[in-house]
Design a protein around this nucleic acid. Structure first.
Lengths: 241, 241
DNA sequence: GTGGCAAAATTGTCCGACAGTCCGATTATC
DNA sequence: GATAATCGGACTGTCGGACAATTTTGCCAC
């Protein structure tokens, strides 16, 4: 079944070069923060033209392996940040026309667990971030855009507090997908804001008091609410179209 | 917490161009399969040099939004495939030095749920893929590399069968992280192979019979085994170093 | 050392060019 | 008439060189 030969694809020089540099980075031979040689120098070392180097660099830059600190010129090795990486994932998902149900199921799988671990492991700073996001929601509850953004930040803060980078990175793309749906929902379902407020309060409280189980079950309720909200919003298609 | 304004970094022309094209794609104004104009033509349309266009294109190509069918020259709009996207995520995670525990917790959150939905929704083809991966493990059980790859394929097949693209895409990066650990474990812990074999059998059976709960609990056991295996392997540091 | 300044280096962009290859149309062959 | 060989054009990958804008560096005075 599996083909005997794989097509040799990597031919383009810029891709090969990108791979070489990438391997250096993952092998830690080039370490985070190290500055890279200049493009001209790289071109000389690899024996190719600068244009070619540039295309290779672009690839790594996009993957978040290379970057420059604001206003600086020299390129240096950086660690890919969750936000950067996850944006690619969420765009991919958006293009695949994920349904709300798919998103919801994934959230249901991840968020409660994240909340549970957050209760167990959160640092004071992480707790503060989380509380602050909740406070922001409360304060900006009338402004839909700000409120939605606060909800997203709350989820992000919980995931960060879970002390698990894998969960955090898995969760990040979900946020971006949630935002549009949530915006509609929050506007059309009157009780949504109050329920979010309550849930965030309970979850934050549980995480503060290090009650893992409570954090988990409240997060479950919270997410379940989203589904109910979505259903309510869907069967009330009054004002659109 | 979140900054109110993002610094407008997009200055470089190649980035702006990339963004413009990207927006066209996500807005479906350019649709999957559509062929793009040639680089020369794009350069003309945007009023920039071809080199600049190339750098922009590279960006989209890497994100999986653009690609070319093997051996074809024209660039066309493609949908980012999970494999492509997830490789970025797993590389990012690897660079962040995720621990086995972090990985395990995430697997524990996602895989059982995926198995559960797979039992409910799998198509005959998906079932077949899954069974085939299990069979491959059984057959190649002696060859560590092949066996590990079969395990990964099994997980992938379960996730695909879940009928949930978000879960599938969340799960994909975990595989690549699992492989190295699993390789060591499977070699050092004698009973590992037998347990994997049994678990895969039970899970496949449950999915075949559409027993959601059973699929879920067996997957949980399966994943738990990994943790035990990892602990066993860790406290038996005989042959290395 | 600190500050300031001019020179050197570096990046983003442009122009022009060429070999290798893919595509489409034309022509030759059965 | 259908298929196969052929040819020219179009396009990509890569190259070399060039230039303005900005950053970094080396140096000098304080």
């Amino acid at each position: 079944m599996a083909d005997l030969f794989v097509p040799l694809d990597d031919h383009p020089a810029y891709r090969q070069i990108a791979n070489v540099i990438e391997q250096r980075i993952v092998a830690r031979s080039l370490r985070t923060g190290d500055a890279l040689p200049s493009e001209t120098d790289l071109a000389r070392q690899f024996g190719v033209n600068r244009s070619t180097i540039r295309e290779a660099i672009r690839e790594l830059e996009i993957h978040g392996l290379l970057g420059r600190v604001r206003g600086e010129k020299r390129l240096r090795v950086t660690r890919p940040e969750p936000g950067q990486v996850s944006s690619g994932v969420s765009r991919a998902l958006a293009l695949h026309d994920v349904t709300f149900l798919e998103l919801w199921e994934a959230m249901m799988a991840i968020e409660p667990v994240a909340a549970q671990y957050a209760a167990a492991r959160r640092t004071p700073e992480q707790l503060q971030d989380l509380v602050r996001a909740a406070a922001r929601f409360k304060r900006e509850v009338a402004d839909t855009t700000a409120a939605v953004s606060a909800v997203v930040d709350f989820f992000t803060a919980v995931a960060a507090a879970s002390g698990n980078q894998v969960l955090a990175l898995s969760q990040a793309p979900l946020n971006r997908l949630l935002a549009p749906t949530l915006t509609r929902m929050i506007d059309r379902v009157p009780q949504a804001r109050a329920r979010i407020l309550e849930a965030q309060g309970k979850i934050a409280e549980a995480i503060k008091l290090r009650r893992s189980e409570q954090a988990r079950t409240w997060m479950e309720k919270h997410i379940r609410d989203f589904k109910r909200g979505h259903e309510l919003e869907s069967v009330t298609p009054k004002s659109n179209k």
